[in-house]
């Protein structure tokens, strides 16, 4: 009762295992529902009707870090929030990725002061930086697609 009845006999597809794994990872990447500041509103816009991030296999935002693959750090991270952020990151199961959304998360942005962590890469390792203050939803989606490119390049021998 699945695709094989609709599409006929699919036969056999031969493929490299790492390609299948990477393909499946990119098409069902669940981001963590975690907004910090202004960028969180744009992240919500990206989820909502006009931009509809579920086209990229992301309709499910998981509130729990233990069910998510991708952390979108949407907004400025204060010194008080930094340890919490790291704690959340540590709870995420492998494999996991991080997108630093916006200037504040990438490098501190306009807030070069005592309260803000100057770039979230001091707290968690970042895979993709998205520029903008805040980035448009399209920019976030572009960042996610860029992350997919990165994930598709991953090699099995590096996982072990």
């Amino acid at each position: 009762m699945g695709i094989e009845q609709k599409a006929g006999n699919m036969g056999v597809v031969t493929l490299k295992l790492e390609e299948v794994i990477n393909w499946s990872r990119t098409n069902a990447m669940w981001p963590m529902l975690f907004g910090l500041a202004c960028c969180a509103i744009e992240m919500m816009s990206a989820q909502a009707s006009n931009f509809d991030m579920s086209r990229f296999g992301m309709e499910l935002m998981r509130p729990s870090p233990r069910q998510s693959d991708l952390m979108i750090v949407a907004g400025r991270v204060s010194r008080k929030m930094g340890p919490v952020l790291r704690w959340l990151y540590d709870q995420m199961p492998e494999p996991k990725w991080v997108i630093a959304m916006g200037d504040c998360a990438s490098c501190g942005g306009v807030f070069n002061n005592y309260a803000i962590v100057q770039g979230v890469d001091e707290v968690v390792p970042v895979d993709v930086y998205v520029a903008g203050c805040p980035p448009r939803p399209e920019a976030l989606i572009h960042g996610i697609v860029t992350l997919y490119e990165k994930v598709k390049e991953e090699k099995m021998k590096d996982w072990a």
Binding site: C107, N113, Q118, E122, V124
Partner: peptide, 26 residues
């Protein structure tokens, strides 16, 4: 109390700051 300014990375000093920036580990 100081503002807590951190030096900004530009092209000319990128590598220098990059080396001492405390990047997080996995």
């Amino acid at each position: 109390y100081p503002l807590g300014y951190e030096e900004v990375q530009f092209t000319f000093n990128f590598d220098e700051i990059d080396q001492r920036k405390p990047y997080a580990k996995e």
